[in-house]
């Protein structure tokens, strides 16, 4: 029943591959949400393993808020080409027209550019299943979510109406318009992800490694000046510091940490010795207790 002859990572890998294959076998039009971060990198790698020697039989989709780090975009395009996968990039054009930006719209920005953008794209392409790289160890409401997470026709998650999920038997049945979000990395921890990247030599965006980068200090966080859209506020100066990112998102919302870790083992070492969780670098979670749950109910990944 358990497979203790396999290492912990081998067990996680097998579970994820099984999940990914199950989606392809049971859904008509799946897509993999590719956010360009380390979790997406691992998820994509697992998808390639699941279907080797074929390429994964689904496209990648990136919901581009137009505020991602430039290095992320370059990396994204290179990976899609290398893996031989179709890449769908969706931008919420309505939001762009309205000039929605992280500086002007606060919490609304994520709603409009990420959540709304995602819903638009899922509707436009009529995807019935969407892979996401979220892990249960990231946040309290994620820890409660099923691997196959049912969404109604409005993309809403109802935490009180989750389907029982037993063994490896996933209920994939949906009605037209409904969809399932699938999280193959549900049971991976941050350490597992790093360790696997290390073992399998999985390429990741260079921003994860420490390098000297231009940053400003704002509200106690180090924000990288990735392009000239970041307007300096009175008293702010651009400093050059050796920094890296524990998590990648929109550059104005993602805090850098000062670090000298420029190799994977050093990154892992640093992660293990720190005493704050990775999501702290993401401003969205600080809004209020339960903010992630609310976002998820509204259709956020």
């Amino acid at each position: 029943m358990n497979s203790s002859n396999l290492t912990h990572l081998q067990q996680l890998e097998a579970e994820s591959i099984h999940i990914i294959r199950e989606v392809v076998a049971e859904f008509g039009n799946p897509v993999m949400l590719y956010s360009i971060g380390k979790d997406s990198a691992v998820m994509l790698h697992l998808a390639r393993k699941a279907f080797f020697p074929a390429a994964p039989p689904f496209p990648l989709m990136h919901i581009d808020t137009t505020w991602k780090f430039r290095e992320m975009i370059q990396f994204r395009d290179r990976m899609a080409a290398e893996c031989g996968l179709d890449l769908i990039v969706h931008v919420n054009e309505e939001g762009v027209r309205q000039g929605v930006s992280p500086f002007t719209h606060g919490a609304l920005y994520t709603d409009i550019m990420k959540t709304e953008g995602l819903k638009q794209a899922l509707d436009r392409y009529k995807f019935d299943a969407a892979f996401g790289g979220a892990r249960r160890d990231e946040e309290k409401s994620r820890a409660k979510e099923r691997i196959f997470s049912f969404r109604n026709a409005n993309h809403r998650w109802d935490p009180k109406l989750q389907r029982p999920e037993l063994w490896k038997l996933y209920n994939t049945r949906i009605k037209p318009g409904e969809s399932i979000r699938v999280f193959p990395l549900s049971n991976w921890t941050e350490l597992d992800v790093w360790q696997y990247i290390h073992l399998e030599s999985i390429p990741i965006v260079p921003l994860y490694y420490a390098a000297v980068r231009p940053v400003v200090e704002r509200d106690g966080m180090l924000i990288m000046v990735d392009d000239d859209r970041l307007e300096l506020q009175p008293g702010e100066t651009v400093q050059y510091k050796s920094v890296r990112f524990r998590t990648l998102g929109c550059y104005p919302l993602t805090a850098a940490v000062e670090s000298e870790a420029d190799t994977l083992p050093r990154i892992i070492q640093e992660m293990l010795l720190t005493r704050t969780s990775e999501r702290q670098g993401r401003l969205i979670d600080h809004d209020s207790a339960g903010s992630m749950e609310k976002k998820k109910q509204e259709g956020y990944f």
Partner: peptide, 14 residues
């Protein structure tokens, strides 16, 4: 497998 053919596989492996 993507990491090369295996000489043996056991319970739990995909």
């Amino acid at each position: 497998t993507m990491n090369g053919d295996l000489a043996e596989a056991t319970a739990g492996q995909a």
